[in-house]
């Protein structure tokens, strides 16, 4: 297990790049998903008013 965490001495580089990569992807996904929810809500409200 320690061997894996150590990554042959490249631990900082390997883990930080994977960390940044997946953190960014998740954040980017969440921003768009939440934005979509928000927009759908606003849009449905205005549509109901017109109806």
């Amino acid at each position: 297990m320690n061997e894996l965490l150590d990554m042959g001495g490249y631990a900082i580089f390997v883990w930080s790049s994977y960390g940044i990569f997946f953190f960014s992807l998740v954040i980017f996904f969440l921003i768009n998903m939440l934005n979509l929810r928000k927009y759908e809500k606003i849009f449905n409200k205005t549509k109901n008013k017109i109806d």
Partner: peptide, 13 residues
Amino acid sequence: GDSMRIMYIHVPS
């Protein structure tokens, strides 16, 4: 060594 594992996310990106 193990630093090449970064390639697995770098290249597809």
